[in-house]
Design a binder for these strands. Structure first.
Length: 576
DNA sequence: GCCGTTTTCGGCCCGACTGTTTTCAGTCG
């Protein structure tokens, strides 16, 4: 059972309690919401926490006390939660679906249910189409329009877009604004800035002497499909990629505070504000203020953290996963950065399903500042990708030798393969072929649907073979397309530690596998990680930044990253 | 309902915008 299930129930309890608001329920509502947030942020299923340490162990988590822990226990034991059921009988509403809509909160949802019997999105759609919603007190034609627009947007985008779509889009907006000369400073904020794997909307912050003109540029960009709202300080547009984008124009003196505030995430901000309060300050999006209202810091984010006695927190870490404590202790690690990458250990060529020659791949890698790559074509069982057999690899490796000779030490191509880990855990090439290679990625590409134990045993057998250097895309998930396969990552990471095998962070925006939380989980073991592009063309190297972003979200330092090593050191490390 | 470097009672993050009002509730980030 996923923690999300229980978190959703707690969230709904909060929604339903919020309707009969009294001074006491107001904070009860907040307590349930906080507990839901906590559940979403913990990696271990709360069910196994409970099995291990009972109700006491659940109460260890912040925001979960005896009341809510008791309800979680009840749900784990009986599959029901009395309080939830009682409230739900009173309000049989699909809060989760309805509250995704712009301008819809719990109170409006309940009003719509009481007056019109609306329980879910399809009810609401009918009511909006027949203009019944605007007959209700407190709702007007604008509300109707907004709900209608929001439902359409949701249908077309189904929520969130990939970072690989969001970041280039945000960068292009930044570029357009700078180019127009209407802004003097502009930055990306929000989950895009935190390099979250999916993004629900874009946030851009700017300083402008001519806000109206900046907003004109913003709302008339090519990619804009509609204007949701437009004002001098804030405008929102819909983009053709299926999400909305906010532009906020800010006074220069509060640009730092605004960044701190709009980069988020929400819980990180709340925690930071609490630190401010403890110090007798007040923190908001305009600055850090003393009790008397004197500005302590505001122009520069770094100053704000410093004045709070904290180390600067890189945006990718701002997820309320313990970074606040580290910042207070001045123990924020120096995270891996793009410039730390010396090479790329997972690339393909036209011999299999790539589009470029090995010469072109090497050349492109060198031109972005890398000093080596491993060429890792697919193996024979992956027929769709024209996987190669032992004989074909022998021929190809001669070509690589020749290329390396001609490069004369200016760049190095390591011979390798992305070798399929077959159903029984054996490898898709002969031992002899693999032993003649320098860097081998082992990957699961078929028979995904195995029970967890079987899959874990399969992968661990490959790790223990002493023949692979890197476990490729370890969970096999495809964001918004396919769940990862069932695998016990603790056991896999332990096996990697024992056999000196690195775990891949695959940089494809629809993979990002391992993801941030799995990186944190695996980091408990003495394993290295390899941030690879899995390039199938020279253009794909640019995806490395998504892998690096994900590694930073997982708090990785360069020392833990295999391909942050200089070539000499790497070669030693790859010896099997 | 949760929580404790002013604590086991009395607080709980905060400001702005929107639509619908005529002074504000609800929603959002």
């Amino acid at each position: 059972m996923e923690n999300r299930v229980i978190a959703d129930m707690l969230e709904e309890i909060a929604d339903m309690l919020s309707i009969d608001e009294t001074p006491t329920t107001r904070f009860e509502v907040r307590a349930y919401k906080n507990a839901a947030l906590t559940l979403l942020s913990i990696q271990e299923p709360v069910e196994s926490v409970y099995k291990r340490g009972g109700i006491k162990a659940i109460m260890e988590f912040p925001g979960i006390g005896p009341g809510i822990a008791g309800k979680i226990e009840e749900y784990i034991k009986t599959g029901r939660m009395k309080k939830y059921d009682e409230l739900k009988r009173k309000y049989p509403i699909d809060f989760k679906g309805l509250l995704l809509l712009e301008g819809m909160g719990a109170k409006k949802a309940i009003t719509l249910y009481k007056k019109l019997g609306i329980r879910d999105l399809s009810d609401l759609k009918k009511a909006v189409e027949s203009h019944k919603v605007s007959t209700i007190e407190g709702f007007g034609s604008r509300s109707e329009e907004m709900f209608s627009k929001s439902m359409q947007l949701q249908e077309s985008s189904r929520g969130r877009i990939l970072l690989g779509v969001a970041l280039p889009a945000a960068e292009s907006i930044v570029h357009d604004l700078m180019d127009s000369g209407t802004v003097t400073k502009v930055v990306i904020a929000g989950s895009t800035r935190r390099m979250k794997e999916t993004v629900g909307d874009l946030d851009i912050l700017a300083i402008s002497k001519t806000p109206e003109k900046a907003m004109d540029v913003f709302t008339s960009m090519n990619d804009v499909t509609g204007i949701v709202s437009k004002g001098p300080t804030r405008s929102t547009v819909s983009l053709n990629i299926g999400v909305t984008c906010d532009l906020r124009v800010l006074p220069p003196e509060s640009f730092g505070a605004a960044q701190q505030y709009f980069i988020g995430n929400k819980q990180h901000n709340i925690d930071t504000r609490k630190i401010a309060i403890r110090k007798g300050y007040k923190l908001n999006e305009y600055g850090l203020f003393s009790k008397s209202g004197k500005i302590i810091a505001s122009e520069d984010e770094h100053d704000i953290y410093a004045k709070l006695g904290m180390q600067y927190v890189p945006p990718e870490m701002r997820e309320a996963r313990g970074e606040i404590k580290l910042a207070l202790e001045h123990k924020i690690p120096t995270l891996i950065d793009m410039k730390d990458l010396k090479g790329d250990l997972h690339t393909h060529t036209k011999e299999t399903d790539g589009v470029n020659t090995i010469d072109e791949m090497a050349d492109a890698a060198r031109s972005i500042g890398l000093s080596y790559i491993a060429t890792t074509n697919h193996t024979k069982s992956l027929k769709v990708a024209k996987g190669m057999d032992d004989r074909q690899f022998a021929v190809f490796m001669k070509k690589v030798d020749k290329l390396n000779d001609s490069l004369d030490g200016r760049f190095r191509v390591l011979k390798g393969a992305e070798c399929d880990i077959l159903k029984d855990g054996s490898l898709d090439l002969s031992r002899q072929t693999i032993e003649s290679m320098e860097c081998v990625v082992g990957s699961v590409h078929a028979s995904f649907r195995m029970p967890e134990k079987e899959m874990t045993d399969r992968v661990i057998k490959a790790i223990g073979s002493g023949l692979i250097n890197i476990l490729g895309h370890p969970t096999g998930r495809l964001i918004n397309e396919r769940e990862g396969f069932a695998i016990d990552l603790d056991r896999v990471a332990q096996a990697c530690e024992d056999n000196d095998v690195a775990l891949e962070i695959n940089s494809w925006p629809n993979r990002l596998d391992l993801n941030d939380t799995n990186i944190m989980l695996a980091s408990k073991y003495k394993v290295r990680f390899s941030i690879n592009s899995d390039s199938h063309s020279t253009a794909h190297y640019q995806m490395l930044r998504y892998g690096v972003g994900t590694a930073r979200r997982g708090w990785l330092t360069p020392e833990r990253v295999l391909n942050a090593m200089p070539l000499k050191e790497l070669e030693k490390s790859l010896k099997r």
